[in-house]
Structures are given as structure tokens and as C-alpha cells.
Amino acid sequence: MHRTGELYGQFQTLEQQKESSTLGMWIFLVTEVLFFGGMFLTYTINRHQYFTAFGIGSNTLDIKLGTINTGVLILSSLTMAMAVWSAQVGKKGLVTGFLIATLALGTVFLGIKVVEYKQKFDHHLIPGHGFDVWYQVDNTKPETEMGKKLLDDEREELHKATLTDPDIQSHAQLYFSLYFAMTGLHALHMIVGAGLLIWLIKLSMRGRFTPQYNTPVEIVGLYWHFVDIVWIYLFPLLYLIDRHR
């Protein structure tokens, strides 16, 4: 293909080329909105139907880790935005630095997610043969008075929930299926984003991004912020729906 510097033959100016690229990325993001929208819709319908079981499932999630992860992801969006700014004003060293920071924060997010998933395995909350919402309450040995009281409260809640919804075991599995599908899909997007960031860091270290040409940083930035938005909705819907009791 004919190419002059960074300008491909089918475009007349770098500006037109950049606008086409960002428009294309936005159109891809529209399809992503509808893709994740379908999952949120499934979640909403089932949560409405199995309100009690979803509340029980949601309250087993670790709110501290969830909140920290939200902060980490928002911070990574800031560093990504700063990488775009550095490229626009031509600070080449800063571009690389901010991209590496974004990648590091993304990795921290995924690491915390792994810790959370591990907890769910330990607590027998993986949908399937070994699933048991009672496991955690029946198998924890509280060390303090406070811990004992919390555990008794939890047992009480489970008893009450079983009275409202006798089939709570299968409906809680539905919650966890959706939890793993939605956070898993989100994590997959993060992994793809991390791959894109590595590619950007390589280009940036060769000094490829200038005020005239920084479309790849801008476009990966759009993707990264979109993944952040998905988490902004996932966090309250999965972690916070039934904390006020």
C-alpha cells in the first residue's frame, strides 16, 4: 500500500486518518456495549426473579477487595489518559512511563481477581457438583467473639433465605454462574488490553508516538476506558445489591 511517512494512501491528511480510526473504534465499542448489555439484561431478569438467592450470593463477595479493585482500575484509566496526553504534547519518555504504569495497574487488578476466585473455590461456591451455600457457615471456626457473632448472623440469614426460597442452592448457583461469566468476560477484556499495552510500550520505546501521530495510543485508550466503564457497572450490581440489612 502506498504510504508517506505515517499517512496511508487512502487518506488525505493525518487528521482525517485519525478521525477514521477513532470512529471505527467507537463503532466496535458499540457492538461491545450491546454484547455486555445482553449479559446485564440476563442478570437483571434473574436477579428480579431470584432476589433472595442473588442477595445471599452477592453478600459472600469480598467488598474490600472489590472496592480496592475499582480504585485500581480508575487509577489505570487516569494513567492511560495521561499516556495519551504525553503523546499529544510530545513527551516521549512519559508516554512509555504511563503505559507501563497502566499495564502494571491492570496486572494488579487481575491479580486481586485471582485471589477472589481462589476464595470462591475454597468456599465451595463454584457452580456444579461441589456447590454448597452452607459450606462457609458450617466449616469456619471463629476465633473471636465478634467472628462468632458474624457467623451466627450469617447462619440466621441463610435460614431465613431458605424459608423464602427453598431451592436456594440452585438459584445461588445461577448467581455465581453469572458472576463468573461477567467478571470472567471482563477479565478476558483486561487480558486483551494488557496485550495491546505491551505492543504500545514496544512501539513507544522506539519513539514512534509524536504529536502528529499517536492514533494507536488514543485508540487503545478508548478500549481501556470502555473496560473501566463495564467494571463501574459490574461493581455495584455484583457486590453491593444486598448489603443494607
Binding site: W26, F40, L78, H225, F226, I229
Partner: peptide
């Protein structure tokens, strides 16, 4: 995030139209 981090506020009209369409189709589906 959309307005500032993703620069939607400073984007050309046709990009803004695409964003509004996304929200609109999502609203129809929901």
C-alpha cells in the same frame, strides 16, 4: 469517563452520534 477520558466532548459530531446510537440501541434492548 466517556466525556473526558474518552474525549467524547471534544470529538467530531459524527463520533458523538455513534455514542448516542449505542446508548439508544441498548435502551431499546433493555
Amino acid at each position: 469517563v466517556v466525556l473526558y477520558f474518552m474525549h467524547a466532548r471534544y470529538s467530531p459530531r459524527r463520533t458523538q452520534l455513534v455514542i448516542v446510537c449505542a446508548v439508544f440501541w441498548l435502551a431499546i434492548m433493555l
